[in-house]
Design a protein around this nucleic acid. Structure first.
Lengths: 98, 98
DNA sequence: ACACTAATTAGCATTTTTGATAATTATGAG
DNA sequence: CTCATAATTATCAAAAATGCTAATTAGTGT
């Protein structure tokens, strides 16, 4: 999971997409308009985000609507938080056992 | 900031390094031993992490000690959390003004 | 100075990512 | 069915990332 998520967020345009979708669902066209890049280029970035499960796509008549997938972002936060705070290598079940 | 951070975390070996450093500071050699990759390869990954400010390097006699830089990870968490939760595009100072 | 160990930088080949244009699919309107 | 619009997939070239071996720098001890 984490690999694709962080990799997907590694591109500025893709983070921008996430920022735009924060204001609510948007169509492929609306997103494509928001950037200098050509539409197919934006489409590809959207696919990267979709493969990473960061967004979902749903056809609605003639257009395709994208939404951010909150839960995956939450997972990424958890992964990140896991990088802070000391660990002794003792296989993680320590906390629970006392 | 965010670009380099997420891009840096986009590689499995580099996330592994972060996980190892969670147990405390480690030398380049200790880290290099932990992977199948050749030492120079690991060094390069360490440089990517360092450029992203995710870790710091400090020479200690003959070896170089790496530590995770907590604050940058916290910033990344904030960036991530900023992707969740509705926004109306109204330039963010809304919350404060009521 | 010389040797030894720790680690990095240089160069090079392979793979992946990016971005554009052209071609294609899908849906709805008339 | 045809036309127009929305969006994707296909292809290709340019740029960046990865990983290796060889060469180099840096510190320590003799």
């Amino acid at each position: 999971m984490a690999n694709e998520v962080f990799k997907a967020l590694g591109h500025p345009l893709r983070r921008q997409v996430m920022a735009l979708l924060r204001q609510g669902p948007k169509s492929s066209g609306e997103l494509a308009e928001a950037f200098d890049a050509a539409w197919p280029t934006v489409t590809r970035h959207l696919n990267v985000l979709k493969d990473a499960d960061l967004i979902t796509a749903e056809r609605q008549g003639t257009s395709i609507i994208y939404r951010t997938n909150t839960s995956v972002i939450e997972d990424a936060v958890t992964a990140l938080l896991g990088m802070i705070g000391r660990d002794n290598g003792d296989d993680e079940l320590k906390e629970a056992a006392e």
